[in-house]
């Protein structure tokens, strides 16, 4: 957490982007794209999540160690999902 210019303007821009993306994801949900709906919704959610993590949570300024700690759980999340699916999908 070095002292860096965590500018107010940046935060407001990020916030604007988050609100925009929320509007977009609601709008897209009214269009019927089949499976693509899921994909688009998750893509937008992940974009928003990345914005929050990188800017609001200052991940941008953190060292590799903190990045490791932040990303490791995602790997294990995928693991539990895939492992369980390997059973339920093929039963």
């Amino acid at each position: 957490m070095k002292e860096h210019d965590s500018g107010t303007r940046t935060y407001i821009v990020v916030w604007g982007a988050l609100v925009m993306l929320t509007v977009v994801t609601v709008a897209v949900s009214y269009v019927h794209l089949g499976m693509m709906n899921v994909f688009v919704a998750l893509l937008i959610a992940s974009a928003k999540a990345s914005l929050v993590a990188l800017f609001f949570m200052h991940l941008r300024y953190e060292n590799r160690l903190v990045w490791g700690f932040a990303l490791a759980p995602l790997f294990f999340l995928v693991l539990i999902v895939v492992g369980t699916l390997s059973d339920t999908l093929f039963r």
Binding site: V66, F69, P73, F76
Partner: peptide, 29 residues
């Protein structure tokens, strides 16, 4: 402290992870 809170958040990811897994499985089913 920074490392500590990120570790804590990691545990939170997996706490919700159980629910997300259930979500995926039942959504498919």
């Amino acid at each position: 402290a920074t490392l500590g809170i990120w570790t804590f958040l990691a545990t939170e990811v997996l706490l919700f992870g159980g629910l997300f897994t259930s979500y995926i499985i039942y959504r498919i089913k």
